[in-house]
Design a protein around this nucleic acid. Sequence first.
DNA 1: CAGCATAAATGCAGTTTCTGCAAATATGCA
DNA 2: TGCATATTTGCAGAAACTGCATTTATGCTG
Lengths: 217, 217
Amino acid sequence: MSIQHLGATTSTDSLRNRKRAATRLAIRRAAIELGLEHGYEHVTVDMICAVCKVSPRTFFNYFGSKEGVYASPSRAMPSEQQRRSFVECSNSGVFDDLFSMVADSLVEVDSNLELFQARHQLIHQTPELLLKEKSRITEVEEIYVGYVLERYRFQGRSETETPDLSDEAHLVVALVSGAMRFALQKWVAGNFHDTPEDLVRSASALVHRIASNEHWP
Amino acid sequence: MSIQHLGATTSTDSLRNRKRAATRLAIRRAAIELGLEHGYEHVTVDMICAVCKVSPRTFFNYFGSKEGVYASPSRAMPSEQQRRSFVECSNSGVFDDLFSMVADSLVEVDSNLELFQARHQLIHQTPELLLKEKSRITEVEEIYVGYVLERYRFQGRSETETPDLSDEAHLVVALVSGAMRFALQKWVAGNFHDTPEDLVRSASALVHRIASNEHWP
DNA sequence: CAGCATAAATGCAGTTTCTGCAAATATGCA
DNA sequence: TGCATATTTGCAGAAACTGCATTTATGCTG
């Protein structure tokens, strides 16, 4: 894991890479456009390929499956530095720290905004895609559970002393995830105007209210 | 929705129904056995049909998809009475009440224990099936979110007064769901010896501890 | 610039999942 | 028994997807 592996890993910007990115984008565009026009289930891979003029075989080389072309590009994970900071430096509670880290690593919406919104719309009107998207999120959450556990262990809490430490981590992540969903919804509804800090503030406020709510046990 | 539609709807126990149940079970058995032996992805519908001697067309009549045969049979949902009780009678906090209701409606593990465990094992060693199972759970959770919202409204809390009431409900359900996962894991690990009351107690204890934890904001 | 190594795109054959439809078979009931 | 209905099945075919060999494009080096 050398330095250049963080920022400039595959971005040699050679003709080859630019072409690759171009076709990838072209296929995505065609797929999402067709999806919004005819509905996900009525779009065939052949139709997509006809529009963007690649062979079906190439389509599968790029995306592996029909669903694959509709999945949002791999979310950015926290950098190694951010992870270490979260594990070893408890700025405030687990919740706030975790939420901040997730929000920070989420800001980089590198891809086309227009395309991002179109895909968002399509996914949310297609149960099958929505399900897939949710399970992708679930997978990411598992990773965060690992981080939280690391932090706990760093703080001296072991699983011999607290046998259900893992469950505790799961619950923390579940809460953060719920708050994050809330924040992102606001972000989308507000046409992406809010800054990451705004997101953290509003979501954090929500959970604080709930956690200290009279309606709680 | 007449009365007889709740308990005795399809259980006429006619020859027809017994046969139906028998083939359904036979197909499930064959599918899970083959799955454990060769791994999910190496099992074809034709293989399953060869073992239990039905036509592939019949297989799809019953389960609709290859994945379908591996899905756990539809979870029992709370009865209308349980739902009303949850919405209108606040015995204790939202959390405890919701957890109790879910646990109660979960006890009915009518199906074969042996088969239940075999499927559990197969699902948990097959990422694709595990994902599907999780999204099924997510869908059920959405229903519970609805219940919680109903309860809130019954208590006079409206979404005009508390705009993110829905998010609050989502978070509550997320917590209950996490605790439930914890309880079920214990249940399976303990070879299904615990009673539903045991599950409620231990899971509830977990969340109480976390909610009142020094590690919380 | 020529030529070679490598990456990417393609064509094609074949497997598998899944659907619609109509025919055959089994069951329930009068 | 005999008719109405439910279930099973076969068959044709669409569509997703894979492996493999071939062609085409790119990068690099002399």
